[in-house]
């Protein structure tokens, strides 16, 4: 954080940058929250979640709308990042993974996650014309986008804050609960497959915990 202030003071008054800086943080956090909700709701749809008080199409409509909303916040997050003079990221590195000179691996994760989300969203918009299998194959990329986005977020400057850590923990808990519920419900067949999927899912919090304990977050800004 201090280096940011120094960097900013060199060119423009620090205060002039702060709204964008905070906008990037806020929009990023909301994107992660909504993406988490979209993934968890998607898992509920696939698992044929049918509570008494909701119809199924309401849950899938919620899944769809929350997904679109997450893309809107993702767009804000990307625009404020590129526009912010404190963060030297241009349009091309914001869209093509792993070519940014700036915070290369972490920004690469962010770009990868958003490209995956874009692929999922675009194919979903035309899914009636795509057919089930090709659409579904791409849609599974959502499972990859979510942890990638999570680790991009965890590498951020605010990860030392309790509130931010709480948000990440809640996101992990929500997706893990949904995935385990679905694996449990999918029984009784394919026990080995379901168990290993459950273990793989549990690796996300384990890796996140290890990552936070080793403390690389925040060292880039």
């Amino acid at each position: 954080m201090t280096s940011v202030v120094r960097l900013g003071a060199a060119s423009l008054p620090v205060a002039a940058h702060r709204p964008l800086w905070f906008a990037t943080r806020a929009s990023g956090s909301i994107t992660l929250l909504l993406l988490t909700a979209a993934v968890a709701l998607g898992v509920l749809v696939s698992g044929r979640y049918a509570p008494k008080r909701f119809t199924r199409f309401e849950i899938s409509a919620l899944h769809r709308n929350v997904s679109v909303l997450s893309l809107a916040f993702l767009a804000v997050h990307i625009v404020t990042t590129v526009v912010d003079p404190l963060v030297p990221v241009g349009w091309v590195p914001a869209l093509v993974p792993f070519i940014s000179a700036y915070r290369a691996p972490w920004l690469g994760l962010a770009t990868l996650a958003s490209d995956l989300m874009l692929a999922v969203a675009i194919t979903s918009a035309v899914r009636l014309r795509m057919g089930r299998r090709p659409w579904k194959a791409v849609h599974w990329l959502a499972y990859a986008a979510w942890p990638v986005a999570l680790f991009h977020a965890a590498a951020g400057t605010d990860t030392h804050l309790d509130l931010q850590r709480g948000l990440y923990a809640a996101c992990v808990a929500a997706v893990l609960a949904a995935v385990w519920w679905r694996l449990y419900r999918a029984g009784p067949g394919m026990l080995a497959g379901r168990l290993s999927a459950g273990v793989v899912a549990a690796l996300v919090p384990a890796a996140l915990g290890a990552f936070l304990a080793s403390g690389p977050q925040g060292v880039f800004l």
Binding site: V45, R48, A50, T55, R56, F57
Partner: peptide
């Protein structure tokens, strides 16, 4: 063959 019995169609 594709239908999984999601039931959304009957709701709508």
């Amino acid at each position: 063959i594709a239908c999984d019995g999601h039931g959304a169609c009957a709701e709508l």
